[in-house]
Nucleic acid binder design. Structure first.
Lengths: 216, 216
DNA sequence: TATTAATATGAATACTGTTAAGTTAAATAC
DNA sequence: GTATTTAACTTAACAGTATTCATATTAATA
């Protein structure tokens, strides 16, 4: 009794890459689940997607999903992480010279809203649904969410440094900007039949108004 | 066969007020269901409230609820109508002289956000959850939602009339204001653990920034 | 008192997330 | 090459869900 594994890292023989292959396969299935979940969440809404539906799509038993994700909320969380990464990449594509930081901020704001409108369900999943199922998500050290907000921080502080914006708290300034773009994005998504002003006009006006209001 | 009711309005005899009493009782139960639903929705979240739970609370069978409301979404809708009325009343309590329309707008914005933070679940139910379950809600003629937005319209147009705000579209201006307060309200509700600036500072800055940005 | 109408319910349908126990198949040990 | 261990996956079940339909109860009227 009490057998001890001796070959934990003394892995002689040709079966060398076995573990790696298995890990790769495991990761593959994880990704498969993830993208099936995203597709269903986006097309049918988080609440209308069952674990069984996801399982059917990938042709596995529902319980298999639980070997890869703690529960449905965890699945949602992983989907949202991807979305945030996506958003971050989209924003960083801009990355122009900071000689005119206000223009950079303006463009970033526009990109943010457009991202939300291009993937409305993903946006809501990330910024509205997820917080409901996963409480206590602040800005965890090293998280993608933190990276996104840092992107905003850098832009804003450049505007303040160049004395274009009022010399107030960087944090507050960034949060004001976020409020504005978040607000208009969600309103446009949630009330598509509201008699909005022409969409791009509204978005531009929201961003311009906020920037003007922040200027020194 | 084919019996015809003759006493539809020739209602002789003492049983005169019966119909009225029955109607009153029916309305009472409707209200009872409604307030039980609101309480549960608010405390446990729409998704975590079952028809059975509501039924238990009012000590009726679950099926009874369906005699008063079409389905769960209809129940949600009615709860949200009440919330909007509540919001409208809260806003109209302000109703001061319009000699300083900007100050009125500022206070109204603050009241709006504070309402959202005081009843966060009601706010989300009304402005985020409901649109998901009931699509196509623009601004229906005579609806309470329309009344709320009209309140905003009036304030804004006064600011424009007095040439304090830029001479741009009233609609757009109102929508910009709404975006700002909606955005900050939802962010504060959904990400309570985010390292926000002091709450009231943030709210005031959002409102002040927007107003400043709108000024001529 | 009998009839009619309103109101409420029990049982059933077809779902839901999740768990515990069991099965199968692959990799390792001897 | 056979036995054992480990990993991957599934079956069955639990306790719950929204909703519907046929039935029962209750109250008002004829």
């Amino acid at each position: 009794m009490n057998t001890v594994k001796l070959n934990t890292f003394v892995n002689k023989g040709k079966a060398m890459g076995t573990k790696e292959r298995r890990a790769r396969e495991k990761e593959q299935l994880r990704q498969q689940i993830l993208s099936a979940a995203r597709e269903l969440f986006v097309n049918e809404g988080y609440e209308n997607v069952s674990m069984r539906k996801i399982a059917n799509k990938i042709e596995y038993s529902p319980t298999t999903i639980y070997l890869y994700f703690k529960d449905k909320a965890d699945l949602l969380d992983s989907v949202c992480q991807e979305t945030l990464l996506n958003l971050l990449n989209t924003l960083e594509e801009l990355k122009e010279d900071t000689s005119d930081p206000v223009e950079t901020l303006r463009k970033s704001g526009k990109i943010y809203v457009e991202f939300g409108l291009k993937y409305p369900q993903d946006y809501k999943l990330t910024f509205v649904i997820r917080p409901q199922f996963q409480e206590g998500l602040g800005l965890q050290e090293g998280s993608i969410g933190e990276k996104v907000f840092n992107y905003l921080r850098v832009m804003v502080s450049e505007c303040i440094k160049q004395k274009i914006f009022r010399q107030v708290d960087v944090e507050t300034t960034g949060q004001v900007m976020w409020s504005a773009v978040h607000g208009v994005t969600l309103l446009l998504i949630d009330f598509p039949d509201f008699p909005w002003t022409e969409k791009d006009t509204l978005i531009d006006t929201v961003i311009d108004t906020t920037i003007k209001g922040l200027q020194a």
